[in-house]
């Protein structure tokens, strides 16, 4: 039953993955903010980039803080979350697409 991968073995050392994840999250948040207010890109470009940065930050949380890959059920865990992300993208993008017909979107 013991799962002997790196994550579970490293628990007596300094929590580097947490510190690195925290640092990256701060950098990504500030970067999104800078792109939003100072980059001068169009709204569409800004939104594509900052949503991309949000997805990167969410992945960092899942890997470095939540240890999604550490248990022996990790394939099922990762599969569940990927499937849920697919559902979320289909719901959000599909709703916006359908509801924007016949309206001039602001």
């Amino acid at each position: 039953m013991a799962s002997n991968n790196e994550q579970t073995n490293s628990h007596s050392h300094f929590p580097w993955s947490h510190v690195v994840g925290f640092g990256l999250s701060i950098v990504l948040t500030l970067l999104a903010l800078w792109i939003g207010f100072y980059s001068g890109f169009s709204l569409t470009t800004i939104m594509v980039i900052v949503v991309g940065l949000a997805l990167v930050q969410a992945t960092i949380q899942l890997l470095m803080f939540m240890h999604i890959t550490e248990s022996e059920d990790s394939t099922v865990q990762v599969g569940t979350i990927l499937y849920a992300v697919f559902i979320a993208v289909a719901v959000v993008a599909g709703t916006i697409w359908v509801m924007s017909f016949g309206m001039h979107y602001m």
Binding site: V76, T80, Y83, I87, A88, V91, I96
Partner: peptide, 16 residues
């Protein structure tokens, strides 16, 4: 983790 998958679906409807 499976519950969290359902939570993602819940929040996606609110975001949409």
């Amino acid at each position: 983790w499976i519950f969290l998958g359902a939570e993602i679906a819940l929040f996606s409807t609110l975001f949409a």
